[in-house]
């Protein structure tokens, strides 16, 4: 079952990269891309780890399907918000800094 292990490793790296992207990238669309990558990494781990230990597990497949639906709902919603935000303000990233002092 070493091939599952490969995907698990890929999932772990995707998690790390996706998280870094979510935290460090300022452009909202890119951040959303990173969020999707992070999601894919988590899903790979969710399926891959049990697959490596016990073989294919349909329960995890169902869970990941649910997870994908949730992720796509969130992505689509975020895209609507981002587009409208851009439409109103012309900005593609959230302002940083002293927003707490407003």
């Amino acid at each position: 079952m070493t091939s599952a292990l490969l995907y698990v490793l890929a999932g772990a790296l995707l998690c790390g990269g996706g998280l870094a992207g979510c935290l460090l990238v300022r452009h909202l669309l890119r951040r959303l891309l990173a969020f999707n990558l992070l999601g894919s990494g988590v899903f790979l781990l969710l399926v891959g780890l049990p697959a490596h230990r016990h073989g294919s597990d349909p329960v995890t497949h169902a869970l990941v399907l649910t997870g994908i639906v949730v992720a796509v709902a969130a992505t689509a919603l975020a895209l609507v918000l981002i587009r409208r935000y851009f439409h109103l303000t012309g900005r593609v990233s959230l302002p940083t800094g002293r927003q707490e002092d407003r």
């Binding site: 399926v47 990941v64 994908i68 895209l79």
Partner: peptide, 28 residues
């Protein structure tokens, strides 16, 4: 997903990840 023997997810991912999300992102 196909390699992980999860054809259901593979199907969904092909439609969503590559298809729908891609179009949404491109449009945005």
């Amino acid at each position: 997903w196909v390699r992980l023997r999860a054809p259901d997810i593979a199907l969904a991912e092909a439609i969503i990840g590559a298809g729908l999300s891609g179009v949404l992102f491109l449009d945005a």
